[in-house]
Nucleic acid binder design. Structure first.
Lengths: 194, 194
DNA sequence: ATAATATTTGAGCAATCGTTCAAAAGTAAA
DNA sequence: TTTACTTTTGAACGATTGCTCAAATATTAT
């Protein structure tokens, strides 16, 4: 009958992540969050310290989700390239409809924040690097399988992939042509450095 | 001695554009703007109606500046491709140090705003399309000069350019390696569809 | 000069911001 | 039960938000 003894921390972080992802750091008020996660201010502050503290948890949670998605794609396909392109298609085509926001939450945060919140920027950058590392691993596997030339730097290619994803997810917000987007994603792998 | 009879509208819009560009729509308060443009609230509201009204002027102003920059590059080079790559290098390499924000103000706005401000989103989208049109013109000129195959759709290539710019400007925020960035920009024109 | 018009001023409004903390409610140990 | 401890509650704080408007000040017309 009564409320739970202790709130489900992960469930709360999930809800907070989605709201922050949807509205961004500044446009999300603590009152918005209180309603979303159904907790009173005192409880939130006891658990997370501040608006920034909860945001940090959300950033970490978002990154974990992204890394899990990558590994899921890895397991679904033998070909690392196929895994990568499936992951990108999911991001660019599906995420913008089903997720809180079509943009990558990390890119959105980098874009939004000023040096006034340097710590949050640094955390966000390091999360982006974590994700890039996953791409590096995928690309190295593809190189070992002979799908990509060994001459290319796996790090450079990972950066290239990240640039494409960021650019395409922004472009996806101004276009409705899904098949055009799909073509552009396929082009990443048929044309350029691969 | 006393203040001017009437404020310099364009100068005020320029200052407001820079502040909005730097901090984004939500994080910029009317009091921030009042200090930046040195006007009292009543004057600002008499001239621009609202925070959104002034933001609209800033978006338009930013777009005009961008279009002027493109045309400047056009006049500096005979080769449209060279003009384009110079423009992109200026955006990605210089803007992030000298401008209020390394990001494109329009992309930043698209990334920040939710459907709660649909009108601002629509305006921003249409400005992005205006800029894309400038790219289309440049590419068509390059096609007429035989620098790019006529088979390719100029619109598709313009979209591709826009994706690269958005992706690279975001990537530029997480990297300090300018020469790497320059290489990536050159690669746009040496590799893919050109 | 005087009157009429245009423009700027800034105190102040209601609403919301992030945050605090004493009190209430719930749980666990004795 | 009673005691000790943990967790939740929500009213309330000072600061800040976007914005208004009567009063003050410039400018222009006569």
């Amino acid at each position: 009958m009564a409320k739970q003894a202790k709130f489900d921390r992960q469930a709360v972080i999930n809800l907070a992540t989605n709201l922050y992802w949807h509205k961004g750091f500044h446009a999300t008020s603590m009152r918005n969050l209180q309603e979303e996660v159904d907790m009173r201010p005192g409880s939130i502050y006891a658990a997370f310290g501040s608006k920034e503290g909860l945001f940090k948890e959300a950033l970490k949670n978002y990154t974990d989700m992204a890394k899990n998605q990558i590994n899921q794609c890895k397991q679904m396909y033998n070909s690392p390239i196929e895994a990568l392109s499936t992951f990108i298609k999911a991001l660019v085509l599906d995420t913008r409809e089903n997720a809180p926001n079509g943009m990558c939450m990390l890119a959105k945060t980098i874009s939004e924040l000023t040096p006034e919140h340097q710590e949050l920027i640094d955390i966000t950058k390091s999360h982006l690097n974590e994700i890039a590392s996953e791409f590096v691993k995928l690309i190295q596997e593809a190189q070992n399988l002979g799908q990509i030339s060994q001459d290319k730097s796996a790090e450079d290619l990972a950066n290239y992939i990240q640039v494409q994803i960021t650019g395409l997810r922004t472009f996806a917000k101004i276009t409705n042509d899904k098949s055009k987007l799909e073509t552009m994603i396929d082009d990443i792998f048929t044309h350029y450095p691969f």
